[in-house]
């Protein structure tokens, strides 16, 4: 009975999202949903290392960028099937995460922030300097699109892309939930809440950190691959401050350390920023609005906005 209760809300949300394309036929609205799903994957996986394990990881978007460029190069330069190219983003990002985690696992506090951040810059500089492979500052364009047999995904107002993105989000969320609920996930919380105690109980802090960074990179990389194939562009912008702060605000506003918070926030914020972009004179100001919202949430509701609604949800339905 309790299990049923725990899954009611997420499943209900999924059913609603699955029926959205029946109601919404506008290509642009569907596009917003697809982008929201991608951000939801980024934010919820970032939360795995930042919220659940307490690693000050500011290089999460690097995994996304690595996945994005891996898929773009595989599909365009080497003619790999776009489906396979998307999936290749996962292992490529995991390798990048492992490379980053090696120095980070031994560091503490602010140095973790600095190194993970610098790692993202390193990746961006590599992309910029290898312009014959990556297109440099211009990025890559006209990347092959998805097909299924004879069916081109460019048809039907993005219907196909919508369900692929939603499917990716569902698989990624189930994966995160499995990780969190496993004994490994509990040891992550121990590392976050009391490093010394965790170590005293035989948890290898460095190893858990490396593992969680690698795990959080997998679906982020796949999402990056999908992003390139879907938009048919790969650009170094994904490594920049802008994308980083948008994804970070989703984690914070949704609630670090929750499972569904960042997903809800990603969908809400994608639509909110897009709505603000439609208002004349607010094209740039919307980033200010998001930054202010982020500060207010940190100040007033450190657990994330979703937590504020928690008392309204019956206890049986609560899911952390």
């Amino acid at each position: 009975m309790e299990t049923m209760g725990r899954y009611t809300l997420p499943v209900l949300a999924l059913v609603v999202l699955a029926f959205v394309p029946m109601v919404v036929e506008a290509s642009f609205t569907r596009h917003l949903f697809i982008i929201a799903f991608i951000y939801a994957i980024i934010a919820s996986n970032w939360n795995l290392s930042l919220g659940h394990c307490g690693i000050f990881n500011f290089g999460h978007l690097t995994f996304f960028g690595v996945g994005s460029y891996t898929a773009a190069i595989a599909a365009k330069t080497y003619g790999v099937d776009p489906w396979v190219a998307i999936l290749l983003g996962g292992p490529a990002a995991a390798v990048a995460a492992f490379l980053m985690a090696a120095p980070v696992a031994r560091l503490k506090g602010i140095y973790v922030v600095l190194v993970t951040f610098a790692f993202g810059q390193l990746a961006m500089q590599l992309v910029l300097s290898q312009s014959d492979i990556t297109g440099g500052a211009q990025g890559m364009v006209r990347i092959p699109y998805l097909r299924l047999g004879e069916y081109s995904f460019l048809k039907d107002y993005k219907l196909g892309y919508y369900y692929v993105a939603l499917g990716l989000l569902v698989v990624s969320t189930i994966f995160i939930k499995l990780v969190i609920d496993s004994p490994f996930g509990k040891s992550l919380k121990a590392v976050r809440d009391s490093e010394e105690y965790a170590a005293a109980r035989g948890v290898s802090v460095s190893r858990q950190r490396v593992m969680v960074l690698v795990l959080s990179a997998i679906f982020t990389g796949v999402a990056g691959g999908f992003y390139s194939i879907y938009l048919r562009v790969a650009s170094p912008e994904v490594f920049g401050f802008g994308t980083l702060s948008l994804a970070l605000s989703m984690v914070l506003i949704g609630g670090a350390g929750t499972i569904y918070g960042p997903i809800a926030a990603a969908i809400a914020l994608t639509f909110a920023t897009e709505a603000l972009a439609g208002v004349r004179g607010l094209e740039e100001a919307r980033f200010i609005v998001i930054a202010v919202a982020m500060i207010l949430v940190l100040r007033l509701a450190p657990g994330g906005l979703l937590r504020l609604f928690e008392p309204l949800v019956p206890k049986a339905l609560r899911q952390r």
């Binding site: 922030v113 401050f241 802008g242 605000s249």
Partner: peptide, 22 residues
């Protein structure tokens, strides 16, 4: 505090840069 102030000063950076652009 360390992590939170990294985030708030990062937000301040975005606010200042976008305000300057405007």
């Amino acid at each position: 505090m360390l992590l939170i102030t990294v985030m708030t000063t990062l937000a301040a950076m975005i606010i200042l840069e976008k305000s300057a652009l405007i």
